[in-house]
Amino acid sequence: MKQLIQNAAGDFLSALLTLNGVSKHFGHIEALSRVDLTLNRGDIVGLVGGNGAGKTTLLRLMCGLYQPTDGTVVYHGENGDRPLVEMRNHLGVVPEGTGLYHRLTAWENIRYHTRLHGIEDEVAWKKTLQLADALSFTGELGRPTRGFSRGMRQKTAIIRALAHSPDILLLDEPTGGLDVTSAREVRSLVGQVRDSGGTVIYSTHHLAEAQQVCDRIIIIHNGEVRADGSPDELMRYTEEKNLEDAYVSLTADAARIFDDVDTEGKIAKIWRKLLTPRRLPSNMSSPEEVNEDE
């Protein structure tokens, strides 16, 4: 890993989360390998990487949903180092799939989470209205989320993540499916969270968006942190003129194929192997032949 920057504000007091030599294994697969990171308060950090790079694993380690196989994840609370689980009181999450209950209204989805944070409904409602107003979403709060477009679901999930005023906001592809105006509103909200002293971790595939929103970008590839720095620093280091070229240069080696079925049970694996055909039907071309034809 190439640690490109020495964060100017990186004194210990401003650090929020530290990952020391964190690795994560699933069976024989090493999803993340010896990650050392420090996330500081007030940062907007972009996690950029391809499919299967290890972004989701890293996010889940940061939330405490996964325990590291090696290394430690330390949350630096107001009163010193605290167990990671305590961070959840100050954490807002927008997962990639939004995670909404389709039989509940947008407000009921939000209220469920604010209640889990111990917030009174009246207080949560006021905050929700404020956030919905910023996202031009007030009229939709009473509707069941079943018929929502991807953009509407995304907005609901963002309001839900912010309704308890978290210090740390974790966003997985937050503008996916949003129109230009809505995406701009979301980016504006993200900026407000940072301005009020919050930390945003922004996982995305879109380098342009990462460049526009994030102060710092962490590039993950094949379970390793390949680069960590501001967009300018990444381009300077790779001697490329734009971030996309810098990214390609840093992730030039082939992406690994993550074998998800490795997580299945032993009996299921034996059964699947017995019933999965080992060859393609004879009248079909092999992938190599298709490539040759092209």
């Binding site: 889940r60 939330c63 949903l65 689980v85 959840r88 009181n89 954490l91 999450v93 927008v94 997962p95 799939g97 939004t98 995670g99 989470h113 889990l116 944070h117 111990g118 999930a157 839900r160 974790l170």
Partner: peptide, 8 residues
């Protein structure tokens, strides 16, 4: 489940 498990 993921969003739920991230709650306190």
């Amino acid at each position: 489940m993921e969003a739920l498990l991230c709650a306190p």
